[in-house]
Every structure is written in structure tokens, then in C-alpha cells.
Amino acid sequence: MKHDIPGDAAWSVPVRAGRAITLTALAENANASMLIIGSDRLDRLNIPDTLKSQMTARIHAGLVLMSDRGLALATVTASTLDWHDCLTGSIPSPLLLLELAKHGLSEADLHGSINFFTKVGIDADARLAFVPGHATVGASVTLRAEQDLLVFISTAPHVLATTPAGGVGVQIGAAEAGGPAGLRPEALRALELVR
């Protein structure tokens, strides 16, 4: 399945366990703010636990995305970028809220998200700042669903960006066998709990 999401739009899709989700930047400064919820509605992406248990402050290849119950939702199997923002939260655009409503969810179901293709740094005044030019056309990231998921994607501009966000291509297909090497014990345990 292929689907292009233009800039400043939203889309949602159910994804079965074992499928790969590949996002591709279709323009400069693309931003794909992604919410992930288990299809049973019990498991939701938990950014603090994902980062803390794997000793990182960014999303990158080789990371397991964990739920608030410590279960693996998805694994980042590949990325052309070594930094995807997860510190600035989701962008609650009206279109994203409409996508949530299609699945019986509401604004109360907004939670921490990943802003794929976006990098945030610290500026001269020690404040978080958008890093322009981080994503170029063709940049990509691939996730493998570790359980059945509902995936919500908004291409609204990042909250700190000063430029419009470009579109993102989404492709869902069979995931390659195997996975990242060198996972931390906490990540391995999260994967074992869903297998």
C-alpha cells in the first residue's frame, strides 16, 4: 500500500504486526508527527519510557518504541537520518483530531508523538529550536510493527518551525526478517512480551 500525505494534512491507517511502515520525505523540511496506539487501545506510545530505557534523547535506527505497559509497539529498523524529534510532542491539528475521531478517539487520546524528519537543538539562548535543513527530499525511515497498531500521521508544520512542512510518502509492506543488533535488555524484554 502506498499513500502520499501532502503538507499540512493528516492520515490514519491500521497496520498489522510484522508489516513495515516506510516514511519518505517528499519535500524539504518535511515533518511527520506520528501517534501510535495498539489496536486493542490499551497500549500507547510512551516516549519517556522509550527514551529512558534505551538511554537516548532522540529516535534513531535500532530503537524499540515502547508502550506505557512496557510492550514493544514498533522497531525503527532503518533511517537515513540519525535524529528524529520526540521531545516537543504532537501537533494537535484539526485534521489529526478528525483522524482520531474516525477510530472513536478524541483529543483526550493525544499523547507523546514522534516528529519524524525533524531535529530540535538548543539555541544561543538555551531554548529548544527547530534545526532547518535537517530533512532533504528522499530522506526515509522504516518501522516494523511488533503488534497490530493504529497509526496516525500529521504533516502539519513542526511547532517550532518557521517554514511550511512538505509532504510525506507512506508505504506499508512486508517487513524484512531479523532486526537491529545490539539492543538493550529492556528493548529485548519489550519485544519478548509481544511474541
Rank of each mutant, 00 (worst) to 15 (best):
S33A: 14
G182V: 08
V159S: 15
R127L: 04
A161L: 00
E28F: 00
G62S: 09
H158L: 03
G133D: 04
V170T: 12
T75S: 15
S140C: 08
D109Q: 09
P14W: 11
C86V: 13
A108N: 13
V137K: 13
A10W: 05
A10P: 08
S33G: 11
L71R: 15
D123Q: 01
I5D: 04
L97N: 00
K119H: 13
I5A: 00
T56E: 09
H134A: 04
A135E: 00
A20D: 07
G178Y: 11
M66H: 01
L87S: 15
P48F: 04
A30M: 02
Q54R: 03
A17D: 07
P157I: 01
R195S: 06
T50Q: 07
R19G: 01
M34W: 01
G178I: 10
A174D: 11
M1H: 01
L73M: 15
T118P: 05
A72V: 08
E146P: 12
M1I: 09
E192M: 14
I114V: 15
A187N: 06
T77I: 07
V13A: 12
D85H: 12
M66P: 04
H3F: 15
A175H: 10
T163A: 14
V168A: 05
D82R: 12
D49C: 00
P6F: 04
G121P: 00
A135F: 05
G169S: 14
L51R: 09
K2E: 15
L98D: 14
H3K: 12
T155L: 09
F152K: 05
L150M: 11
D68S: 08
D4N: 14
V168K: 04
L193Y: 03
P48E: 03
I172C: 05
T136Q: 13
L81M: 14
R195P: 05
A25Y: 02
L65C: 14
V194G: 13
V13H: 10
I172R: 06
M55C: 05
I91G: 03
P48V: 08
L81V: 00
V194E: 05
D85W: 08
P14G: 10
V159W: 05
M55I: 06
D49E: 02
S106A: 14
Q171V: 14
I5K: 02
D49K: 00
T155V: 02
A161S: 15
Q171Y: 06
G169W: 14
P94L: 02
A145G: 05
V120T: 06
P157Y: 00
I59N: 12
V15R: 01
I153S: 01
F152R: 06
L143E: 02
D148L: 07
V64W: 07
I122S: 09
D148T: 04
L128A: 10
A161W: 05
E146Y: 09
R189D: 14
D125V: 03
N29T: 04
A177C: 01
E192K: 14
L35T: 05
G182K: 07
G7C: 13
L110M: 12
I37R: 10
